[in-house]
């Protein structure tokens, strides 16, 4: 969404993205839709299911949580945070796991595999490590099996794995074929989407000391724009044959060989 001139890095190494529309990142959106499908399915089997949505960030995120209420999540929670944790997945994982351990026990934690800003790709893995739960990565489908088992499909190197697994576990959602979340009707928004969002402060999760440690252990030094612009080099030559020769020798030969 941002054009080239927008990628301005300030002295805190942050980028102002406030003038473009927020969207859910595709992995999170897939994860949410998978969760809703799982919930539909489980409800159909008359197995009780309770859905909690948790996010960490500022008030802007409440609109997504309200949508999730309208889509019949049982609880929507925001952990209020103004610290820069874009590149500190350890903090995110710490908060999530502490919430699950101490405040609201869960059988399954479903997460998108990475965010569009930090691109860390670590949070779900760290949550699993902290909780000492097993983890499945690159999940593309979740189905109900029995009360304490799930049928999970994920991409692995060289193929697709479908496993029946016992909970508890952490599921990290990858490039699923379906990446859009359903849309609640106006009526459901009115009926269910007006509930207050639960808010906790991130300070309640004792992150102060951890913040300093993490920032020191993995310190962001710089952010630089990667150029994706093409050069549009025009080949000069007297005849088409000459141009074709130049194209082949200088630009094409090596690329063809690599294919």
């Amino acid at each position: 969404m941002l054009s080239n001139e927008d990628w301005v890095v300030d002295s805190n190494l942050s980028i102002d993205v406030s003038f473009v529309k927020n969207i859910l990142n595709c992995f999170d959106e897939s994860a949410l839709e998978m969760t809703l499908k799982l919930s539909d399915y489980v409800k159909g089997l008359n197995i009780p299911i309770n859905l909690t949505a948790l996010t960490i960030g500022d008030k802007k995120l409440d609109t997504y949580l309200k949508t999730l209420y309208a889509l019949r999540f049982d609880k929507a929670l925001r952990i209020n945070n103004n610290e820069d944790i874009r590149f500190l997945p350890q903090i995110v994982a710490h908060v999530i796991s502490q919430y699950v351990k101490e405040i609201n026990k869960q059988d399954v934690i479903i997460l998108g595999r990475q965010s569009g800003e930090g691109d860390n790709g670590k949070t779900p893995l760290l949550v699993a490590e902290i909780l000492k739960w097993p983890c499945i990565t690159q999940v593309i489908n979740i189905e109900a099996d029995k009360e304490d088992t799930l049928k999970v499909t994920n991409m692995v190197d060289g193929g697709i794995l479908t496993q029946i697994i016992r909970t508890p576990c952490v599921l990290s959602v990858g490039n699923a074929p379906n990446s859009y979340m359903r849309v609640p009707t106006l009526r459901d928004k009115m009926k269910y989407g007006k509930r207050e969002i639960d808010v906790l402060e991130i300070d309640e999760f004792n992150i102060k000391a951890l913040l300093d440690t993490c920032r020191n252990e993995c310190e962001l030094k710089s952010l630089e724009k990667i150029s994706h612009e093409r050069q549009g080099v025009i080949i000069e030559g007297k005849t088409p044959a000459e141009k074709a020769r130049i194209l082949y020798d200088s630009y094409l030969k090596e690329r063809l060989e690599k294919l």
Binding site: E117, D119, H228
Partner: peptide, 8 residues
């Protein structure tokens, strides 16, 4: 980072 727009 930033969906392959930046190098961190």
């Amino acid at each position: 980072a930033y969906s392959n727009n930046m190098e961190a």
